[in-house]
């Protein structure tokens, strides 16, 4: 996994609530067997018409907005567990998603792919949308180390939460799997103890 420490970037606003993973990447594009190439179909049905031509009113087709940060309304990433949602966002070039609320499975999938979910207060989210509306070139400074997100050129800054373990993993680019594989002996011991309790019954 790629390391993440901090980022300074403009942002793309998507002020909708309950953006579900079927919007992020529709099911018909889940037939690939690799992790690459999902970015071209990110937000496919909001971004393109049925004939494949771009929808001018969708934010990813508006050259005014760009950047490595996506700012979205509450309950971002709800719905299906498809990790393809995180893959399509990173493949497109996003490094950070900001919302006032993330769906659980999406949040986990993002963290496992070096995509930082930054949960801010509804008030700060509103300020971010307002700042982008006022000046699409406004930059945001996200520091994972300090767990802060700031609006550049202002004194507006907010702290965000992240599990300490996840933070270390993101900063160092560690995967959970390396850690779990290192526990093999303890996992086997757990299995032996449990089987000794009563064979065939799994509680």
């Amino acid at each position: 996994m790629e390391k993440f420490t901090h980022i300074i970037s403009t942002a793309v606003p998507l002020p909708m609530e309950d953006v579900d993973t079927d919007q992020i990447i529709p099911a018909r594009f889940l037939k690939a067997t690799t992790r690459e190439g999902f970015g071209k179909n990110l937000f496919r049905d909001w971004r393109y018409k049925a004939d494949g031509s771009p929808k001018a009113d969708f934010v990813l087709n508006n050259q005014t907005y760009s950047g490595k940060i996506l700012v979205a309304g509450k309950n971002f990433g709800c719905g299906s567990s498809r990790e393809h949602a995180a893959w399509s966002l990173t493949d497109y070039g996003f490094k950070v998603v900001v919302s006032s609320f993330f769906a659980d499975i999406f949040r986990g999938n993002a963290l496992n792919n070096g995509l930082l979910p930054v949960q801010v207060s509804p008030e700060f989210l509103h300020e971010m949308f307002t700042a982008i509306e006022h000046d699409p070139q406004v930059k945001f400074i996200v520091s994972l180390e300090h767990q802060t997100i700031a609006i550049a050129g202002t004194e507006r800054e907010e702290q965000f939460d992240i599990d300490p373990f996840r933070k270390v993993c993101m900063i160092n680019g560690y995967d959970d799997i390396d850690f779990l594989l290192s526990l093999k002996g303890e996992i086997e011991e757990f299995e032996r103890v449990r089987e000794g309790e009563k064979s065939g019954i799994l509680i």
């Binding site: 567990s81 990790e83 792919n113 799997i177």
Partner: peptide, 13 residues
Amino acid sequence: GIGTSQVEQVLAS
């Protein structure tokens, strides 16, 4: 439900 990275973790450990 879990994501694919977690599917890999469970397969592995």
